[in-house]
Amino acid sequence: MTWIVRRGRALVVAVPTLWLALFFLIPFLVVLRVSFSEPAIARPPYTSLFDWDQGLLTITLNLGNYAYLLEDDLYVSAYLNSIWMASASTVICLLIAYPMALWIARSPMKNLLLMLVILPFWTSFLLRMYALIGLMSPTGFINSALGLVGLGPITMLQTDFAVYMGMVTGYLPLMILPLYSTLEKLDGALLEASHDLGARPWRAFLDVTLPLSMPGVIAGSLLVFIPSVGEYVIPALLGGPDQLMIGKTLWTEFFNNRDWPLASAVAIAMLAFLVVPIMFARNALGVKE
């Protein structure tokens, strides 16, 4: 009996493990392998790491790609700028999403409001970004409306502002939903108790609601921050030429320079510098909860 239970557990875990190994681990290892090779005019356009010659296995690891990332300040500033843009977008999302989530959680029309939050997800992400182009272009809706009252066209597209708009509208639901789920579960009795003990609403929010909703804040922030850092589509469509972001830099290495090894090194370095610390932070905070 216990044997079946154990085997059953193993089977249940086997499916997602296999899935992750096949579609995450193996592609990751391929990228890692490419990052240690050298570019070549061939198909595929990089050299092989392993050379098998008469029983002698030679492994050539080219660490030059990683060294180059530090040599040229382009990459470091692209990383820093991406982190900055992503952090700012996350904070803006949080500031907008928190009151919305709180309101939805306490509203009698929860289901309808939640529906409205989820609705944009049914439209393609790309399409929503194109809608923003229509909204912000020099002859778009906003500028046409401004023109009616005699205000000149404002250049909004191809600026940082447009990128923040894109990031915030694109990722806002990812912030609202986890916040909503923690706020909705919040025990109303705790707030009543704090009021009974003389806390003003603001005080009750700071001491009761906010600390109890921290898991939602962290989950939402990670959901927004992680995809924002490597974001390529939004800066490419809405951003200006002077924005240095790691997603675009990676694209340039891959497509313009045809340097797959260096592009892979950029990707691996991004993973190491961003995702690994985030995972640690998440675990540390998770333990504390």
């Binding site: 040229d72 300040d73 382009l74 500033s77 030429p241 002077d242 924005q243 240095l244 830099t249 340039t252 313009n256 320079n257 045809r258 340097d259």
Partner: peptide, 15 residues
Amino acid sequence: SRTVNRAWTSIKTGQ
């Protein structure tokens, strides 16, 4: 190729 593309990034970003 690398020189040209690096120059290009530099032109586009001002860095």
